[in-house]
């Protein structure tokens, strides 16, 4: 059986909101490593990988590895019924085809349980090799989201280039072109406001803005985002979930034919 009690229930709500538009169905895996998910979008361009480590849960009990197939839209519907400050507990009995979400208000004066049907999902796990990236950019997540949103009103693709000058986001469309350059900036009041650029060699990659905008839905999960880039390889866009884990998106680039 499985029982996971998450005091910061709002976090699970944010996780679902950040992935439900990209992926329809996914297996949530529960093991000693943590509560995890890996799922690909239907166009096979983006993969989302989530890890919530056991330490982040007040109670983390699963007596064997368990995989639970869920429709993410339905799961999001259920989690929307939880308050942002509620404690959320996931429960599943061995062999059951349902999962129960229990929501407790912080003052324990309201307790609700929602039972959701599980589904069988055949999903292949991808192996992501450790890579030495040409450039790694850490910047405020809200700034990255703003840039992606702004550029998508001009064009459909974004070219992300890292040079000694900084990181450049460029697009072009019928009405014109747009360039946004962010320079390294560590002279900030709070560490999360910094832009840090580690460059081993210059890199330039093109991505569909539709996908970039979709993955910026994870912005509420973290103040910062890390972009790991290598020429001709998928980008890794990571939002760290404080002291608990991460949500990572692997996004295939567009390549000149």
């Amino acid at each position: 059986m499985l029982e996971l009690r998450l005091v910061q229930g709002g976090l699970l709500k944010k996780v679902l909101e950040s992935i439900k538009d990209l992926v329809n169905d996914a297996n949530f895996d529960c093991s000693a490593t943590g509560f995890s998910l890996q799922a690909m979008d239907s166009s096979q361009v983006a993969v989302v990988a989530l890890l919530l480590r056991p330490e982040g849960f007040e109670r983390y009990w699963c007596d064997r590895n368990i995989s639970m197939g869920m429709n993410l839209n339905n799961m999001a519907k259920m989690l929307k019924c939880a308050g942002n400050d509620d404690i959320i507990t996931l429960k599943a009995e061995d062999g059951s085809d349902t999962v129960t979400f229990m929501f407790e208000s912080p003052t324990q004066d309201k307790i609700a349980d929602f039972e959701m049907k599980l589904m069988d999902i055949n999903s292949e796990r991808l192996g992501f090799p450790e890579a030495d990236y040409h450039a790694i950019v850490r910047m405020p997540s809200s700034e990255f989201a703003r840039i992606c949103k702004d550029l998508s009103s001009i064009g459909n693709t974004v070219v992300i280039s890292v040079t000694k000058e900084g990181v450049r986001f460029s697009t072009r469309g019928d009405i014109g072109t747009a360039n946004v350059v962010c320079r390294q900036n560590t002279a900030v009041d709070k560490p999360e406001e910094a832009t840090i650029i580690e460059m081993n060699e210059p890199v330039s990659l093109t991505f569909g803005l539709r996908y970039m905008n979709s993955l910026t839905k994870a912005t509420p999960l973290s103040n910062t985002v890390t972009l790991s880039l290598s020429s001709g390889l998928p980008a890794v866009v990571e939002y760290r979930i404080a002291e608990m884990g991460y949500i990572r998106f692997y996004l295939a680039p567009k390549i000149e034919e």
Binding site: M40, S43, Q44, V45, A46, V47, E124, R125, L126, G127, F128, P129, T157, T206, G208, L233, P234, Y250, A252, P253, K254, I255, E256, E257
Partner: peptide, 14 residues
């Protein structure tokens, strides 16, 4: 024009 490629080109299943 740049063409969108799929992730499976880069990562095999495990």
């Amino acid at each position: 024009l740049a063409q969108q490629v799929q992730l499976l080109i880069f990562y095999g299943g495990v």
